[in-house]
Every structure is written in structure tokens, then in C-alpha cells.
């Protein structure tokens, strides 16, 4: 009976539908996590009215967003304006299909999974430009140009930072990368590739426009950037896209550098339940993202570009040579 579910088109469609569903929920839960972490950092409780200790807050938020009216500026380019949130959300959801959750549990085991991840994340800058142009507002356009320039420049250190692990693994597949890190946390790539891990982390922060890099929003300068004209559920979808992108970057960082679903010590192997380890690692990375958001100020545009091009890229190139020399010697 259940055999039919494992046949190819049905398996893929089911798994993909489940992924979209989970990513939407992830985004909703992360909004609450964000507010809770912010609350505790600022010595208050955060949302605590809806449900036990405020746990049902996301449901209330989504319900509120659905009941609000979707406004669009009269001069807006309506189709571009409305498609932009979807063009931002879909890439963040698509990357999940190449992440291995547990042994053998991956929706699509591509031989070029890393390139797929880079390709799909590069589409999201298109969504930002569409939002900025579609709203026909100067603030939006300014925010969109900032955001797109930032994403395009930080793609370079991000790609370079993955090269070290690709050289060590000899494969572009995420499944191979995870099995390459088996046997305890001292085999994980973040030890031998620590500078690359830091660069990937920083470039990932910039790629998802989290706080030290949120120049595209810049609420004190350009009052919200590309999302200024959005309201109701379209705004909700943009927020969901940002949180989902944060989840994706954390998942890729955990898979490439922190061993994916591999347990930290060999005797902690949980079989199919190893997805718990992946979940723990992803949550840890997301938590550090949130800590950074609530404790650091925003970069200036020139500082942002300097950091990307003059610090991160040279570190990556130097460490590629170190890795190559180490591979040659050992």
C-alpha cells in the first residue's frame, strides 16, 4: 500500500509539498523565537499573552496578517509588485530539497547540490529588485539597489569559502560532504576550515540581510527599504522569506561545516532520528544570528563593501592555498 508513495514523481511531489509546508511553519516559529530572544536580551519577557508563555503567538500573527488589507500604491507596477514576495520566498524554500536530513533522507541527491544552492540563492536578489521597482517609490528603489549590490558582492566570498570543503571532499554533493565528516566532531570541516567557516557565516549573514548587514531595510535611513509599500499578507510573505532564508543558510552551514546529521560522538548515533542533530545544529546557528541581531549596530555601505572585498575574499583565497598545500603534503 505504502509502496506507491515511494515511486518517483509521487515521492518527489509529496516531499516537496511537505518541505514548503515545513518552511512556512519554520518562518512563523522563527518570528516568535526572534521576539523571545530579543525580549530576554533586553531583560523582558517578549510575547507572553497568547497561549502558554506566548507559544501560540505565531498563529495570532498569521491570523492578523490574513485579515489585514493588501494595499498597493496607485502608481505601482502591480504584477511586479505582487510577484516579488513569491520570487523572494520560493528560492528559500527550494534549497531545502538538497539538504540531507538523516541517512538516506534527502529529497533530491543532486551531484551538484552546492552549485544548486548557490544558483537558487542568487535568484533572491531578483525578487528584491522586483519589489523595489514594483513599488515605484524612491525609498524602495534605493533599498532594492542596496540589497542587490550587497547580495551580488557577498556571493563571491560565499562561493570561495565553500571551495575548501569541496577540495577536501572531492565532491559537490551535500550527501558526500556529510558522509565525509563521519565519526565524531573532530572530523567536522569547521576545524580544518575554520577561517572558511567564519567567512561563510559572515557572508551568509549578509546574504540573508540580517542585522549588521540590513542596509536594504535601514529603517532609520530609508524607512524600510524595498518592503516599505507592502502590507498585509504580501508583507508577511516577505518576512517569511527572510526567516526561511536564515533557516536555509544555517542548514547549509551546519551541513557543510558542522557535519550535517552526523552525531558529535560516534556512540550517540540515533539512526533515522539523526535529524535531531541537524535540528540542534541549525537552531544553534540561528540563535547566534539572533544574538548578533540584537547586539550589533548596522554597517555603513562603504564598510560593507570593504569587509566583503578587502577582507573576506583575500582570507578565502589564502586559505584555499593553505588547503591545497596541506592536501599535497598529507
Amino acid at each position: 500500500m505504502l509502496e506507491i508513495l515511494n515511486q518517483e514523481p509521487i515521492r518527489f511531489i509529496l516531499a516537496f509539498g511537505a518541505t514548503i509546508f515545513l518552511v512556512l511553519n519554520l518562518a512563523a516559529i522563527l518570528t516568535m523565537a526572534e521576539r523571545k530572544v530579543a525580549g530576554y536580551i533586553q531583560m523582558r519577557y517578549g510575547p507572553n499573552r497568547v497561549g502558554p508563555r506566548g507559544l501560540l503567538q505565531p498563529a495570532a500573527d498569521v491570523f492578523k496578517l490574513f485579515t489585514k488589507e493588501n494595499l498597493a500604491p496607485t502608481k505601482a507596477d502591480l504584477w511586479t509588485f505582487l510577484i516579488a514576495p513569491i520570487a523572494m520566498f520560493l528560492p528559500a524554500a527550494l534549497v531545502w530539497i538538497v539538504i540531507p536530513f538523516a541517512p538516506g533522507a534527502v529529497i533530491a541527491d543532486l551531484n551538484v547540490a552546492i552549485v544548486f544552492f548557490l544558483a537558487i540563492t542568487s535568484i533572491s536578489s531578483l525578487g528584491i529588485i522586483m519589489a523595489g521597482y514594483g513599488s515605484r517609490s524612491n525609498f524602495s528603489l534605493l533599498g532594492a539597489l542596496r540589497g542587490a549590490a550587497q547580495i551580488v558582492s557577498y556571493e563571491v566570498p560565499m562561493i570561495l569559502s565553500l571551495l575548501g570543503v569541496i577540495m577536501l571532499t572531492g565532491s559537490l554533493s551535500l550527501v558526500d560532504m556529510v558522509s565525509n565528516q563521519a565519526g565524531g566532531f573532530w572530523n567536522w570541516h569547521f576545524i580544518s576550515q575554520f577561517p572558511m567557516f567564519l567567512v561563510f557565516y559572515i557572508a551568509g549573514l549578509a546574504e540573508v540581510q540580517r542585522v549588521p548587514f540590513d542596509l536594504a531595510e535601514g529603517e532609520s535611513e530609508i524607512v524600510g527599504g524595498f518592503q516599505i509599500e507592502y502590507s498585509g499578507m504580501t508583507w508577511g510573505l516577505i518576512q517569511a522569506a527572510e526567516f526561511a532564508a536564515m533557516g536555509v543558510i544555517s542548514a547549509v552551514a551546519a551541513t557543510v561545516f558542522l557535519g550535517g546529521w552526523q552525531p558529535p560522538l560516534p556512540f550517540l548515533d540515533l539512526g533515522q532520528f539523526n535529524f535531531i542533530w541537524l535540528g540542534l545544529k541549525v537552531s544553534l546557528i540561528i540563535f547566534t544570528f539572533q544574538l548578533i541581531r540584537w547586539s550589533l549596530p548596522r554597517f555603513r555601505m562603504d564598510q560593507l563593501m570593504d569587509l566583503g572585498w578587502k577582507i573576506l575574499v583575500p582570507i578565502c583565497v589564502a586559505w584555499i592555498f593553505v588547503t591545497a598545500a596541506a592536501m599535497l603534503v598529507f
Binding site: 552549485v115 544548486f116 548557490l118 544558483a119 542568487s122 535568484i123 531578483l126
Partner: peptide, 14 residues
């Protein structure tokens, strides 16, 4: 899939 990924990375993304 490699060609597809490079197509998206270069033509759509860049």
C-alpha cells in the same frame, strides 16, 4: 542538473 544550476547561477542570478 549541473548545466541547469550553472544556467540559473550565471544567466538568472548574474
Amino acid at each position: 542538473p549541473a548545466l541547469a544550476a550553472f544556467q540559473v547561477l550565471i544567466y538568472v542570478g548574474a
